[in-house]
Simulated assay, not measured.
Amino acid sequence: MPKARETVLEINLDALAHNYNYIRSKLDEDVKFMAVVKAFGYGSDVAGIAHKLVELGADYFAVAYTSEGIALREAGIEAPILVLHPQSFNFEAIIENCLEPSLYSKFVLEEFVKTAEEKNQKEYPVHIKFNTGLNRLGFSEKETDVVKDLLTATTAVKAKSFFSHLAASEDWKEREFTLMQIHTFRKIAVKLYDDLGYSPMLHICNTSGIINYPKAHFDMVRSGIGLYGFGNDEPNDEKLRPIGTLKTIVSQIHVLEKGQSLGYNRAFIAEKRTKTATLPIGHADGINRQYGNGRAGVTINGSYAPILGNVCMDMVMVDITGIDCKEGDEVIVFGETQHATAFAEKGNTISYELITGISQRVKRVLITD
């Protein structure tokens, strides 16, 4: 693998294939696979990721916002795309781009039906979301008659699926709550099947749900974070491969004498002679200030180098005392030598926030093993 010569996020498509195949192996053959690629493919490269997932056999894609779905269409993705959090302002664009909206309240369902009728649509596919305990988006169990009445009063739309979202599927201490969510969802679906006279697909499992609740796979599952190499617990993390490695280089080396300071607000004062390296990456790139002042570090030529002082917008400084390195050498922030979960924990956060926060100004490079 060529050494980095600038700040880059390497995205390993073979690791993505490994993760997809591992998660797919947990499913029965007839269960569909929805790949969640919102937030630029969890901070990676959404077009490259999506094309690889099509090649691997993904049945569906999911994004958060309409603009993300349009970007996939413009990248040549023809598979069905669910928009998880559409806004009524975007409903015409959804139809124009053959996207499929999640409709989660009386207001958005009525508004989409109105738009679909104005556009002379016939059985346009929509996905009805139910709130079974996450209390974020979704119709309540008490609103099933609202859903039935609105769907049966028009031919412009037709429910393609009913779905819900598990709140704590990775936490065995919350198993009773998760089983309650699954039971409630099943009850809602059975009632609506009878009322509507047809059976939309059902899906409730996220990555942790796929692994921990196989009886709740229903017709389709949704996997996001697992595809990118994170299983939400140590045993499954070991079976997955993080697809992203964030790399940068050593820009300049300095030597601080005892008593000299470094960086903004003189946050680091050398207690002894200290050798430092300045790296071209900072909080504008997604390595936020919470990682500074020794809380996190990077790897240079196999050795750990803690961050010194405050993280700057475009730079961080690290302690390379005792490390054999020179200007231009490659630096690994997370990936090959330091798991992103471990790096994130040092900043008191989670891998989701770290990887999705890598700025779009960081160059993405698709690689294979």
Rank of each mutant, 00 (worst) to 15 (best):
K160Q: 13
D149P: 01
V221L: 05
C325F: 05
E234K: 04
H18L: 11
E174N: 00
T276A: 03
M180N: 15
E234R: 02
A168R: 08
E257P: 11
N310W: 03
E100H: 15
G43M: 04
L179A: 12
P80H: 03
T152M: 06
I320W: 04
G76C: 10
E330K: 08
L82N: 00
F177N: 07
K191F: 12
R295Y: 11
D30Y: 06
E238W: 01
I81S: 04
E117K: 13
H217F: 08
M1C: 10
N97P: 02
A39Y: 01
S102D: 07
D30A: 11
L262K: 05
G335K: 09
R273D: 08
S102M: 07
F107K: 14
K114E: 15
Q338S: 12
D145S: 05
Y352P: 13
E271F: 02
N288L: 14
A71Q: 12
V46C: 13
H165V: 14
G286T: 07
K148P: 05
A168M: 06
H165L: 06
L82K: 01
V331A: 04
V147C: 07
V146P: 04
A189N: 07
V113I: 15
I225T: 05
T356L: 01
F230H: 13
N12Q: 08
I323P: 05
V362F: 10
P242C: 09
F185V: 00
T341M: 14
K187H: 12
Y20T: 07
L82S: 05
R5C: 07
M315I: 15
I287V: 14
A50E: 01
A39F: 04
M317A: 12
G43T: 01
H127R: 07
C98R: 15
I300M: 06
G286W: 10
